[in-house]
Structure formats: structure tokens, C-alpha cells
Computed example of a mutant assay.
Amino acid sequence: MKDAHPTLTRIRAQIYALAEQIGILRQGALPKVGALAAVDRHIQSMAASVRVKPSAFAQGGGEPVSMYPEDSHRYACKFFPEVIRAHLYAEVKALYERGLTVADDATREKLEAQQLQLEHEEEAYIRQAAAEGKSIPRRGEANPAVLLADWPEGRDQQAVSRRAPGVRASVLRIRDLALVTGDQVQAPY
């Protein structure tokens, strides 16, 4: 095997860049249509907390409107929903016009697939180097599914250790982590 470090450095740089883009997309805002729908849901929710009792007028006593909503905003949503909606719509639209990162699930999924492919390439280089007796440290953020992928069934820890020194410790740490956190990761042995 030729020196894999420059290749791994390039792959790892791509993995980190994709991880950053994925993180930005995960924290992105709803599409504008979703944000405007959230405004409508908010107004309905606030208005629902205000109770109107017209029987108080008919029976000559009692409170015609509930007295204890937490704030005046709830009353405004109940009695003036169109005014509140127009104001909140304008605020939300202005926010999107100024520029806002919108969460895009399709793009995020495509980037995650690219990242997974790069992680498989990275692991292939590491395993090849281990088979040749070279030790290349794994990234701390390495995907456990990639580390445990493609292991022959029925392999015991010692056989893995003889074939690829240094791999066993990583596999054991991943397995132990999976057991501690309760994740559903199948061990390769």
C-alpha cells in the first residue's frame, strides 16, 4: 500500500466539511410556508385559551370572558386574529427576506450519503494499512456503523486482532459504548 496519509487527510477534510454543512442544514429554519403555518397554529392556540361565556349576558351575572389567560396577547389572538396574523406574517416574511438558512431535508440526506461513502473509503484505507501492519488512528467521531460494517460473521476478537492490530481496541470501544448508551449496534464477533 502506498502512503495513505495524504489520501486520508483529503478524505477527512471532505468528511469534516460535509459534517459542517449537514449541521447548518439541521439547524436551519423551516421553509417560509411552514413558518407562516406556525404563525396560524400559534394564533389558534393562544385564542383557544380564552373562554367566552355568552350565558353571563343572558343570565345577568358572571364573567363573560375568562379573566386569567397569562397575557394580553392571548386576548388579542382571540378578538383580533387578523391584525395579529398580518403583523406576524410581515415579521416572518421580513426575516426570510434578510436571508435565513432553510432546512432542506433532501439536500441534507444527499450530503449525509456522500459523508457515509467517504467514511467507508476512510475505513477501507485504515483496514488496508492495518492488514499491512501499519497503525493509522481513527477519528474520534468515526461512525460506529462504518467501523462495524463488512466484518465476516463468526470472527472472534483474537482473529481480528491478529489480522489487523489496533482494530480490536476500536471495535471493543464501539461495542462497549453501544452497550452503555443502549444503541442497537451489532458487534462483528
Rank of each mutant, 00 (worst) to 15 (best):
Glu121Thr: 11
Thr9Gly: 05
Ile24His: 05
Pro54Tyr: 06
Ala4Lys: 03
Lys134Asn: 04
Glu153Thr: 13
Lys2Asp: 06
Arg74Cys: 09
Asp105Gly: 10
Pro64Ile: 13
Lys53Ile: 13
Gln128Glu: 11
Arg85Gly: 00
Ala94Tyr: 06
Arg138His: 14
Ala159Ile: 11
Pro31Arg: 03
Arg173Ala: 11
Arg12Leu: 03
Arg85Pro: 00
Tyr189Arg: 04
Val65Ala: 08
Glu20Asp: 12
Ile11His: 04
Leu116Glu: 09
Gly140His: 03
Thr181Trp: 05
Arg85His: 04
Thr181Ala: 10
His120Phe: 09
Val52Ser: 10
Val160Ala: 14
Arg175Asn: 11
Thr181Cys: 12
Ser161Pro: 01
Ala38Asp: 13
Gln184Phe: 08
His120Gln: 09
Thr107Lys: 12
Pro81Ser: 13
Leu179Glu: 09
Tyr125Lys: 00
Asp104Cys: 06
His120Asn: 12
Ala145Thr: 11
Arg108Gly: 02
Leu36Gln: 02
Ser170Tyr: 05
Asp176Gln: 07
Tyr125Ile: 02
Pro137His: 00
Pro188Gly: 07
Ala131Asp: 12
Tyr96Thr: 06
Pro188Trp: 10
Glu141Ser: 14
Arg108Ile: 03
Gln27Ser: 08
Thr181Gly: 09
Gly23Gln: 04
Leu118Pro: 08
Ala94Cys: 12
Lys134Val: 01
Gly99Ser: 13
Leu148Cys: 13
Gly62Pro: 05
Phe80Arg: 15
Asp183Asn: 06
Phe79Arg: 10
Tyr75Trp: 13
Glu121Gly: 02
Tyr189Pro: 14
Arg162Glu: 14
Ala103His: 12
Met1Phe: 02
Ala129Ile: 01
Leu179Thr: 11
Glu122Ile: 00
Met46Leu: 14
Leu116Tyr: 13
Asn143Glu: 10
Glu20Ile: 06
Gln186Trp: 02
Ile174Ser: 15
Trp151Phe: 15
Ile11Val: 05
Thr9Lys: 03
Val160Thr: 10
Leu147Cys: 05
Ile15Gly: 05
Glu123Phe: 03
Pro31Asn: 09
Gln44Ile: 07
Glu132Phe: 00
Ala106Cys: 08
Ile24Met: 08
Glu122Asp: 15
Ala103Leu: 00
Lys78Trp: 11
Arg155Ser: 13
Gly182Thr: 00
Phe80His: 11
Asp150Ile: 03
Gly23Lys: 09
Ile174Ala: 12
Val50Asp: 14
Lys2Ile: 08
Val33Asn: 04
Lys93Gln: 10
Gly62Glu: 02
Asp40Tyr: 07
Leu148Gln: 02
Tyr125Met: 03
Asp104Lys: 05
Glu70Cys: 00
Glu109Cys: 02
Ser66Thr: 03
Asp183Ala: 12
Gly154Ser: 07
Gly154Thr: 06
Val167Trp: 02
Arg51Glu: 13
His87Met: 14
Ser45Asn: 15
Ser66Gly: 15
Ala17Val: 07
Gln59Glu: 08
Met67Phe: 04
His42Arg: 06
Pro144Cys: 09
Leu100Ser: 01
Glu122Met: 09
Ala169Ile: 01
